[in-house]
């Protein structure tokens, strides 16, 4: 079963103010590079990065990588919300993947080992959906099987599949992540993360 990774990196970073949160410094490089490192160190064989906001800047980081795992695609409708990026990814990968693993580019604390655990569990148990549960609620990564691709294409705006998860509840596997998955939306989030690391 081929599971492709999708990294949603098209968002506008609006809540952060003037800076693009992906390029804030983290672990001797940037948040975005940290997420990419964890993804490329994972078991996933191919990862599609969906770009949009400041796509040039994102592409220049991707061009530096020496791995055959990562390709990128530009979502010209990125301003309409996250669903347009999901559609882009499904369109591009539906032909050669039996499932898609979604990750977001603003959670640098997610380790490759968690991604591995998700992929391996999904391959072995073969549910329709697998997601990670953290103390504070549903986290990432989240995996959708091929069967759900048509429904993913129907998503709109920033809705991210809550309905789907409800609908396929009985065919969903939940794995737990005991670590906190900091979601860097505001500068306060970032400061808190950095202070915790100190």
């Amino acid at each position: 079963m081929k599971i492709s990774g999708v990294l949603l990196a098209a968002g506008c970073s609006t809540r952060m103010g003037a800076v693009n949160k992906l390029f804030l410094e983290y672990n001797k490089h940037t948040i975005f590079e940290e997420v990419l490192t964890q993804l490329s160190n994972s078991i996933l064989e191919s990862i599609l990065v969906v770009t949009g906001f400041e796509a040039d800047k994102v592409a220049s980081v991707l061009n530096q990588l020496s791995t055959d795992k990562i390709i990128s695609i530009y979502n010209d409708k990125y301003q309409t919300g996250r669903a347009s990026s999901i559609c882009c990814a499904v369109d591009s990968l539906a032909g050669n993947s039996q499932a898609l693993l979604f990750m977001v580019a603003d959670k640098p604390k997610i380790k490759s080992s968690l991604i591995d655990k998700a992929v391996i569990t999904f391959r072995e148990k073969q549910p329709e959906i697998l997601y990670v549960q953290t103390k504070s609620g549903r986290g990432h990564p989240i995996i959708f099987s091929q069967k759900l691709f048509p429904e993913l294409l129907e998503l709109e705006g920033d809705l991210i599949g809550n309905n789907l998860i409800e609908k396929y509840k009985s065919d969903t596997i939940i794995i737990k992540d005991t670590a906190t998955q900091y979601d860097i939306d505001t500068y306060e989030d970032y400061t808190e993360l950095i202070n915790r690391e100190k």
Partner: peptide, 10 residues
């Protein structure tokens, strides 16, 4: 029980 299992070592 699944017939196919997988593990990763880093």
């Amino acid at each position: 029980k699944p017939r196919r299992r997988e593990a990763f070592f880093k």
